[in-house]
Amino acid sequence: MALSINDACVNCWACLPLCPSDAITANLDGATHFAIDAKKCTECDGDYASPQCASICPIEGAILDAGGEALNPPGSLTGIPPELLEQAMAEIQAR
């Protein structure tokens, strides 16, 4: 049972000091983003009501559960409906 961080991460450091298991590292082995040590991660079970990294992370889709599902799915943090965001980005690309 462990969470993971993918390359949507923007290296903002918010999660690192919050982890009760000291499982998060910055740029491990030359990675371009933060990473979670699966051996250490407890998903904050027993420490907090919700996983701390996923509770402060500002980036939708950056933190995944053990099954690979995003804990903060598109639209859940910014409030921007995903289809609107896609549409806006497509319009900008087309300029």
């Binding site: 903002c12 450091w13 918010a14 402060i56 500002p58 910014t78």
Partner: peptide
Amino acid sequence: APACNIQCHYCNRKYD
């Protein structure tokens, strides 16, 4: 100071 503890609707944390 990269980390933030709130989200504002005028801010996008991915921006660089």
